[in-house]
């Protein structure tokens, strides 16, 4: 599972860097931090979600999306909005 997740995340990061270079755009330092924290939380959630399902702990699996997954998604959305609005202004 982690091999596939690694491939997907790697491809996404490469795509992002390619996109930034193409449009001559970059992230601020705090946007990088917020985005990476969000990504880490999502990866943490994915591991624990599937781990909990393997443990037959379905409530725990769902709770991970609520407790760590949702904040992770919010942080990624914040990063996206910050960059999108900055790009729009420019």
């Amino acid at each position: 599972m982690w091999f596939i997740i690694g491939l997907i995340v790697g491809a996404l990061i490469l795509g992002l860097i390619w996109l930034f270079r193409k449009s001559n755009f970059n992230l601020n330092w705090y946007e990088w931090i917020i985005g990476l924290i969000g990504l880490a939380l999502i990866l943490f959630t994915i591991q624990n979600f599937f781990g909990s399902l393997a443990e037959m702990e379905s409530k725990a699996a769902a709770m991970f999306w609520l407790v760590t997954g949702l904040p992770g998604l919010i942080l990624l959305a914040v990063t996206w909005q910050l960059t999108a609005r900055r790009a729009k202004k420019a």
């Binding site: 943490f44 624990n48 781990g51 393997a54 443990e55 702990e57």
Partner: peptide
């Protein structure tokens, strides 16, 4: 009392 699949 837990299995050890979830990293938490």
């Amino acid at each position: 009392t837990k299995k050890d699949y979830a990293g938490i």
